[in-house]
């Protein structure tokens, strides 16, 4: 039996996606679709994503790179006449796709998002230098050298303006209670996984 316009995927989204229970409330006005700053780069703007969910297009939604185009500008949220927390739903869908391993390979924003989290999860604070170097080397070593060279002027300027600390590479910022912090995040993740049915 075809899954077309059946509620199965909608139900999954409601259970597993942050604020997913709002998807059914979209009235398809399209205001959000016209609000994304990177609008032209979305294969499916939020309005469409919501309709696709309701039309049961699980595969298409979760493999799409659309959600990864969200800049978290909250334009849509303040404009949506139905007050959908669109930004969070985009984040939530991206998270679901990532957790299921369905998100597009080599999606840069996804990589950055993971790096960012791992960076902060380690020390409790973000190490901007490691983060940026990581970003430049995400595509492998050769490309990394190229990327870093391209942005070298920026980096040096930042160092000169005392806004990037080369010493961070060897430690730098971090919180004191790291063990408590790690335990806390582990617990939170555990609860979330149970609630959202991630093994």
């Amino acid at each position: 039996m075809s899954e077309n316009y059946r509620n199965n995927f909608l139900k999954e989204v409601e259970e597993r996606v942050e604020e997913g229970h709002w998807v059914k409330m979209c009235m398809q006005c399209g205001v959000c679709a016209g609000s994304c700053p990177l609008g032209p780069h979305w294969a499916h703007p939020p309005q469409e994503i919501f309709m696709m969910i309701r039309a049961g297009k699980r595969e298409e939604v979760l493999t799409s790179d659309s959600m990864w185009m969200c800049t978290s500008c909250y334009n849509c949220v303040v404009r949506c006449p139905r007050k959908l927390p669109i930004t969070h739903i985009m984040h939530g869908l991206a998270n679901l796709a990532y957790r299921l391993g369905l998100s597009p390979k080599n999606q840069t924003t996804q990589k950055f998002a993971s790096m960012f989290w791992n960076n902060l999860a380690q020390t409790g604070r973000v190490n901007e230098l490691k983060l940026s170097l990581g970003m430049y080397f995400k595509d492998g070593f050769a490309q990394g050298i190229k990327n870093a060279m391209a942005m070298q002027s920026v980096g040096l300027g930042m160092v000169k303006a005392k806004r990037l600390n080369p010493m961070e590479l060897f430690g730098g910022h971090g919180i004191k209670d790291k063990s408590g912090f790690h335990a806390m995040l582990k617990k939170a993740r555990e609860i979330e996984d149970r609630r959202k049915n991630f093994a």
Partner: peptide, 17 residues
């Protein structure tokens, strides 16, 4: 001993809670 807020980019790995 404050920690990072997660900004709005930590979602992929971090999730909700």
């Amino acid at each position: 001993d404050w920690n990072c807020c997660g900004a709005s980019i930590g979602y992929a790995e971090g999730g909700e809670l």
